[in-house]
């Protein structure tokens, strides 16, 4: 089916029997993966899930509403540190995660409301400043270990110990998978359509009864909350967090994920996160060449395919389906 003919069809998350087969196989593969590959790959897959969450959150903000953020590592850091503080105060795991999400969402309001008046380069620099400011505040805050950082333990929930890489993989898979599903649903709801309307023509959207202030702030809040959740998952994964780890380069990498994957497509963010995380992993063996190669790949994607990897995939798919037209 090349074109969507009915609204029910548009609403469906998985369209057509082929897609069901692919989704089923992908799901089965993700569940079976820890028993198929070596330990360090399980760790990196978990890292990919966490990065994919941030890339998705950024995709909602940049791709759907067209607001740039160069400071998403700040939200990730906020989530990770709130999670640490909450667990130190004896919060149970899920409450600590919830606290991380809520604080990060609150930060999203703090950044989102002033940024209503900003656009383009001004917003980019303001969010860049937010990321750097968070990093510097954490560097100088002794309660959370200042620049030396702090240890993060993996959780024990209802007597089940998630210390092992495999066990933690499943925990992250469930939480990240659930949020990914919610975000994909959000994109197809009236909220997602409102987001895209504000991106494409804010004045026209306003004329159609979409409250710009409300939806732009909402996008920031959702994005910050998801990035905060990613932070709460990231801390226990790496085991030791330092402010230095949440630097500008990380924020840039998140933006690269969404754009290289395909701006405006949520599956593109997943693809981009996989691509960048994989590239990082492959390049980590050639240390001195890694930064140059990384930059060159990014330049190549931007020069050759504006719609990103997912956009290219859509073109191939359409060509295949409509062939020989």
């Amino acid at each position: 089916m090349l074109f969507r003919e009915r609204y029910e069809h548009e609403l469906r998350l998985i369209r057509g029997s082929q897609a069901w087969v692919v989704a089923g196989l992908a799901g089965a593969l993700l569940v079976a993966l820890p028993f198929l590959v070596k330990g360090y790959l399980v760790y990196n897959m978990t890292l990919f899930f966490v990065y994919a969450l941030v890339a998705l959150s950024l995709s909602v903000l940049v791709g759907l509403t067209g607001q740039v953020s160069l400071g998403h590592a700040g939200f990730l850091a906020a989530g990770a540190y709130v999670f640490v503080i909450a667990t130190q105060h004896g919060f149970p795991y899920l409450l600590a995660v919830l606290a991380a999400v809520l604080v990060s969402a609150a930060l999203g309001v703090v950044i989102g409301v002033p940024s209503l008046r900003l656009e383009g380069p001004y917003l980019a620099i303001a969010t860049l400043g937010f990321g750097l400011a968070i990093q510097q505040i954490l560097t100088n805050w002794r309660l959370v270990g200042a620049s030396t950082g702090t240890l993060v333990d993996r959780p024990v929930i209802l007597g089940i110990d998630f210390y092992g890489d495999r066990a933690y993989y499943y925990l992250v898979l469930v939480l990240a998978g659930f949020v990914t599903w919610m975000l994909f649903n959000l994109e197809r709801s009236h909220v997602g359509r409102a987001f895209r309307a504000t991106r494409d023509a804010d004045l026209a959207a306003q004329m159609s009864g979409i409250g710009l202030a409300r939806y732009k702030t909402l996008a920031f809040v959702i994005s910050a909350a998801v990035a905060g959740l990613a932070g709460a998952l990231y801390g226990p994964l790496v085991g030791y967090i330092t402010p230095e780890g949440f630097n500008l380069l990380l924020s840039i990498k998140f933006l690269l994920m969404t754009v290289v994957g395909g701006l405006g497509f949520l599956p593109g963010a997943l693809l981009g996160a996989g691509f960048i995380t994989g590239l990082d992993l492959v390049l980590s063996t050639f240390r001195s060449w890694s930064q140059l190669t990384f930059g060159a790949v990014v330049i190549a994607v931007m020069m050759l395919e504006p719609a990103g990897l997912y956009g290219r995939w859509l073109k191939i798919k359409q060509f295949w389906k409509s062939w020989p037209l």
Binding site: L292, F294, A296, M302
Partner: peptide, 21 residues
Amino acid sequence: KNQTELGLLILTLGLALALGG
């Protein structure tokens, strides 16, 4: 090919990484 404001911004980010590397 990507001549949007954001696309060119990302291009310069890539260039920054490549030049630094």
